[in-house]
Design a protein around this nucleic acid. Structure first.
Lengths: 171, 171
DNA sequence: GTATATATGTCAATAACACTGACTTAAATT
DNA sequence: AATTTAAGTCAGTGTTATTGACATATATAC
């Protein structure tokens, strides 16, 4: 009685993953992301910052010297949204913004000592959670995890994620 | 020069996953979730509903007859937050709420025809995305994907996700 | 060198989603 | 009869995001 809502409840589905398997994946993504971000959210709660600040700190940390436009492309939010968050982070000395030497329209962003310290604490927690989840899964399983997530990402953005095997990222 | 921020930039890290690998996983989760939800968000945009409505519709669809308290536990939001979203969904006839026959304090929720139709459209899209991501990864890889996500979820909630291999879910 | 395009920033209004705290109602349990 | 549980509501607040309009500085094209 409870089985499928995706298909019309008959017993077909021949060659592809069954509905239940796909629904399970949907739920796994929801719960995993909820808990994955929840931990960092809790750590941030004291500082007055939120998830948006975390994202900015993370990506500036991962891409030192990133420009505003590049950051917007990654986050897929509007300039005005970023502005508020970024303004606070600069104001409170977590991020340093410097004009590009060559193209003086561009502002490049860097973590301050304080910013890097916060980034480290946040990333450390999340890394630990993932590291634990990797345990007992085995290299092939971990590779499967990566491959499926990569496949879920919009094609045009798959290369935005740093690809370890290949030489070096740039962004 | 850009490598690690997690550890102090020296070349250690012996037995465990290296920082770059874990950072990559963090980014994969971010981008995958962003795009995974983005598609449904776009579909919802016309209707005036948002991601919160989607979550309620999804979980009521997956757990027909779920009570308010059970839904709150899954979503980890407050009663007041749910109230707004749920109220709209009932008002606009996507969800039907009926008093439990036995315990008349409980209100059980069900999708209406209209609600089930919307749920189907949303879940279909997301399922298709996951199905595509599964292609070429192989059964072991898919199992790895599931296992890692399950490991990321807080221990107390790992069984909230339907576990296909075992008899049946309940919630 | 003037015109145009690009990169960034800002002002104002609005909306979705979430929170805390305090309280009510109805029904079940003790 | 007293207490607990399930659900709902009122009021106030905060974070994250949106759209639209406009301003400034700099680079590039003609």
């Amino acid at each position: 009685m409870s089985k499928s809502i995706l298909r019309t409840d008959a017993g077909e589905s021949p060659d592809h993953e069954d509905d239940a398997g796909l629904r399970q994946a949907i739920e796994l993504l929801f719960f995993a992301y909820r808990d994955f971000t929840g931990e960092a959210d809790a750590l941030l709660a004291d500082t007055g910052f939120g998830r948006a600040h975390h994202r900015v700190i993370y990506f500036v940390g991962a891409n030192s010297g990133i420009t505003v436009a590049e950051l917007l492309k990654i986050l897929k939010i509007t300039k005005q949204s970023l502005s508020r968050v970024l303004g606070q982070l600069i104001e409170e000395d977590f991020i340093d913004q410097r004009t590009d030497e060559i193209d003086r329209r561009r502002r490049r962003m860097y973590l301050t000592i304080k910013g890097a310290e916060l980034e480290r604490r946040l990333t450390e927690r999340q890394s630990l959670r993932i590291e634990k989840a990797y345990q007992g899964v085995g290299p092939a399983g971990v590779e499967g995890f990566r491959a499926v997530l990569r496949g879920i990402i919009n094609e045009e953005d798959r290369n935005t994620v740093s690809n370890i095997k290949k030489p070096e990222k740039k962004i």
